[in-house]
Design a protein around this nucleic acid. Sequence first.
RNA 1: GGUGCCAUAGCUCAGUUGGUAGAGCAAAGGACUGAAAAUCCUUGUGUCCCUAGUUCGAUUCUUGGUGGCACCA
Length: 299
Amino acid sequence: MTKRLIVIAGSTGVGKTDMSIKVANHLNAHILCGDSRQIYKEMTIGTAVPTKDDMATVPHHLFQFVSAKDRYNVGRYERDALLVLDDLFKRYDNALVVGGSGLYLDALCKGIDPLPEADHAMREEMLLLWHSLGGREILLKELQERDSELWDTIDKDNPIRVCRALEVCRLTGEPFSKIRRGKIIKRPFEIVKIGLRREREELYDRINTRVDLMFSEGLLEEAHSLLPLREYNALQTVGYRELFDYFDGNITLETAKELIKRNTRHYAKRQTTWFGGDKEISWFHPNDYDGVIDYIEKL
RNA sequence: GGUGCCAUAGCUCAGUUGGUAGAGCAAAGGACUGAAAAUCCUUGUGUCCCUAGUUCGAUUCUUGGUGGCACCA
């Protein structure tokens, strides 16, 4: 029998966890994390990882398994997720991946080109240059010389894009666009994409309520304990950055809370945009368990 | 009760020496290949509080209201 990976995607706060538990139970499947922040050990409340009860009901993989200090990335995620799936498919016919990180999910479903990992020293130096007077022009000029094909399409206002592309050119000695082919890798299993969505207003209400709940669960304390890790990418995350600003005395707690709500809404919107562009997704309301299970069974 | 100041986009405000107006935030749309909960791009018509006047023309000046704020009684 062919093995199947069921992807459950959707924006933050839409209700993916509940759906995934039900579907996993029904299919006798395990759940993988498809979220770029729930993988970190140190973060629990602010990333809304599934509860202990949830995890006890269905086996979960790739949740909170690396340290925020480990500088994890998409490439490692692709590899780790495939390893877990390889193992699971020896015993089960179905597996679920649940999350809201479009890039991570795409890497798992379609593969990602073998680009070199980041060179953090080089990156830091480039970003410093970017923000200095005339630095942007210097970097753009170098990129234009190294990769004329990319030049036409790259977002020249986006320092992270430009510096990353340049980084790859320097590290490999080849144009970035030559290595990043976007070739789709056929996986040795079937992929079924389920998208969850609800009315915008309803989603925003849920987000606001969830942020309040996070505070009552101790988000403030969690963020405070993570102050020593604030420079790591893992902590460049909604719910933590705003509180770091509060600890610095730049904003009030009330403002931080409002900003977390707002930034979570912004994040949810970006996710909506990403997933909306994926034509392979079949959409359901988060409460429509029967609909989802029906759909999967009739495939 | 008196005097002064204010009333412009969902919010905070700028501005028009009289020719019907624009920033920030919010909101909406979009991009996305090892930082992706990141990073970046696009989008601003609104009885310019109401009324009467002056004027070719008033959101702008004048009269009278209404509401808010401050000070004096």
